[in-house]
């Protein structure tokens, strides 16, 4: 089985810890990296693309973050997308169930999915199955 590469972008350290814990429990073959804000994440992806290094296949993106929030990340990502060598699936993971956020999410074609926290083990399993076409 192919090795997975997932990027977590969230300013909530606990969330990051928990998700990493769940993911590692699901599969040990998944490489997990994380950033606590959108700015670092977009800078990372830009750099990786420039040096033709590997970029993650999946991004779990938080909305509410300092420096550059989820929406800001998506705007920057849109600019970056033509330069990407492979497609990246982005899942928005938000703590709010606000209809306005859901509506706004639909405007971004770059988004593959939308989850409301807490993201469960089953959710993560489904995402991985969808991406890697393998049952976890």
């Amino acid at each position: 089985m192919k090795k997975g590469n997932i990027l977590l972008v969230d300013d909530d350290e606990i969330y990051l810890y928990l998700v990493k814990k769940i993911l590692s429990k699901i599969s040990e073959r998944i490489a997990i990296s994380s950033f606590t804000d959108g700015e670092q994440a977009i800078n990372f992806i830009t750099n990786q693309t420039e040096v033709h290094q590997e970029v993650p296949e999946v991004i779990l993106l938080d909305v509410n973050m300092p420096f550059l929030d989820g929406w800001g990340f998506l705007v920057e990502f849109k600019k970056l997308k033509p330069k990407l060598e492979k497609s990246i699936r982005i899942y928005l993971v938000t703590s709010s169930a606000l209809p306005s956020d859901k509506q706004k999410a639909k405007e971004f074609q770059e988004l593959t999915g939308y989850f409301v926290k807490p993201i469960t083990e089953d959710n993560l399993k489904n995402i991985l199955t969808e991406v890697y076409e393998t049952n976890f």
Binding site: I14, L18, N64, S96, L98, K117
Partner: peptide, 16 residues
């Protein structure tokens, strides 16, 4: 917004 994002976030973490 504040309540739904900032407050809900740690609470969900806690529940997890």
């Amino acid at each position: 917004y504040l309540v739904s994002h900032n407050l809900r976030s740690p609470v969900t973490s806690l529940s997890v």
